[in-house]
Structure formats: C-alpha cells, structure tokens
Design a protein around this nucleic acid. Structure first.
Ligand SMILES: [Zn+2]
Ligand SMILES: [Zn+2]
Ligand SMILES: [Zn+2]
Ligand SMILES: [Zn+2]
Lengths: 137, 137
DNA sequence: ATGGACATGTTATAGTATTACATCACTGAT
DNA sequence: ATCAGTGATGTAATACTATAACATGTCCAT
C-alpha cells in the first residue's frame, strides 16, 4: 500500500539537498521559480535544475506537489507516511497549507475505485477555504 | 450547501456558448488552448476569450477545471449537483475522465475541516490511475 | 581504462494564464 | 434622446510554468 519509500535525506545529491532545504526553510509552498530564485546564490541558473531535483524529492516522498497552486511543499510528516494519500487544506487568504491524512475518506475513495474497476495509483485531495487564524481576524 | 447555481444554457453569451459547446462535443477534457484552436473558425483569436468564458461556465457549474491536468471538462451531471464537491477519476493511459460524487468521503473531509476550524469553500479530488478499459487490454 | 548509469549544466522552446487598455452592447435614469 | 453604469468583447503584450535537446561530468564495477 505504501510503495513510496522515504529517502534518507543524507543520500540526497547536492541539488536535491539545496531544493529540499529551500522548501524546508520556507513556511509554506514555493513555486519552482521561487525556489530557483532562492538558489541563485548557490549557483542555480535554470528551471530544469529545480524541476529535476523536485522530481526525485517527490518520488522519495520528501516533497509534495500542490496541483491547484502549481507549487511544492516539504512533507512535514514523520518518515513512513503514505504520501500518495496525503491531503492538504489551503487557506485562500494567507496561503497557509496544512497537510493531513484523511484515512477514512481515502478508504472510501479506494472503495469507489475498486468497485469501478479503476486501478488507483494516487490521489490529489486539496481543500480550499480559510484557515482558523484568518477566520479569527 | 449547494451554493453553485446551474445556469440556464440558453442564458449563455455567444462566447460562453461556443466554449461550452466545444467542451460538450469533446469526449474528454480539453486545455484552454485546445479550445481556442477548436474555435478559431468561429472567430476566436486570443486565449483570453477562452479563459473568460471558462470562468463564467465554472461559476455557473457547467464546467469543471481539472487541476492536475490544467484542463477543463463539461459537467455531465444533471442540473443541481454540487459542483464544488465533485471528484474525478483520470486514466493515465487513455486520458479518460469519469466524474463522480463521493458524498461519504466528502462528508468526512467536511468533518475534518469543521473540527479543524477550517472554513471549507471547495475541494479538489482527482484520482489518478488506470481505467477498467485500459486494464482489460 | 573503459563502459554504464546517473547527476548536472546550458540553451532554447513549449505550454499555460493574466494584465492592460480600448471598444461595444445593453439597460435604466434623467 | 441623452447619458451613465454595467458587463461582455477584442487585441496586444507579457508573465508564469514546464519540458526538450544536447553536452558534460562523476562515480563505480568490470
Ligand atoms: Zn507528506
Ligand atoms: Zn489563513
Ligand atoms: Zn459536475
Ligand atoms: Zn484508460
């Protein structure tokens, strides 16, 4: 079920480590070009350097892509979580993103797929709305 | 709960009707630029004509945006479905897209949001994998 | 040392979406 | 009839996101 293996961060290549570090330092999602700008001081010059690193980081379960933002975020989960079943709540006011694992809802989606004969590889679940902090203001 | 109101297709403007017709005639999702190419014979010349029409059609609940494809699809549901809670199964082999309404799973996501104090406006739920037809080959 | 696998560098290009500004059509009030 | 307000449209330019193509480098196993 969990066929994404968490990669030992120590095993990352130089570019992968730089991109992961940029995402980890950010307090929210970054676009690929924002990452590029962060890393120009480290010698990055072309978007492909970022996209190639992101591809590996996503494969390794260290980073998620947020489809509805065209942006990327470092996984905050402990090693071993099931990345292809993660979900995100995205605040449309402040941009804050919270990752969570709606296991029950995912099980129901898996059930739907099974009943339909659809071989499920991964899901994209992104909630849009307003976070508690923004609602409180 | 259902704050998206289905628009009377007869009330569409000329451009909106053309875009909706292009999407309805297609047997799957189309990108904005694919729609533009479809409609050049009808006088369309710029992407903005497509994007503006899509915006209204999505507001009216006649069209869905598929975030993980950067593409758009006509809603096949009967009038009155809850568009902000629709889900899609996308075949990565043939590109087929099936819309469905996983009400139970959505209820669980709504519950999660409520417990977290997150004011949920809409969800993006997109399943990726292989459809029954492609699995059969 | 040689070949293979993989990471990287660099340039160019493709694909997606929005900004800015001008114009037009309709409606309602004067 | 004129005018103002609203919303739709036309057009050009630009911004943003992602990949193709090809050259080079690095490391390890043979
Ligand atoms: Zn995660
Ligand atoms: Zn917020
Ligand atoms: Zn629908
Ligand atoms: Zn298929």
């Amino acid at each position: 079920m969990n066929d994404h293996v968490h990669v030992d961060p120590a095993a990352l290549t130089k570019n992968q480590a730089l991109v992961f570090s940029a995402l980890s330092d950010a307090n929210g999602p970054l676009t690929a070009y924002a990452i590029l700008d962060e890393l120009r001081g480290d010698g990055f010059k072309a978007p492909l350097q970022v996209y190639r690193a992101l591809e590996k980081l996503i494969e390794g379960g260290l980073v998620h892509r947020l489809e509805s933002l065209n942006a990327f975020v470092a996984c905050r989960h402990p090693t071993g979580c099931s990345h292809q079943w993660a979900a995100f709540a995205i605040c449309e006011s402040c941009g804050d993103v919270k990752e969570f694992s709606p296991d029950k809802a995912m099980d129901l989606l898996k059930d739907w797929a099974e009943n339909d004969g659809f071989k499920l590889a991964k899901t994209t679940v992104e909630l849009r709305g307003q976070c508690p902090a923004c609602l409180a203001t």
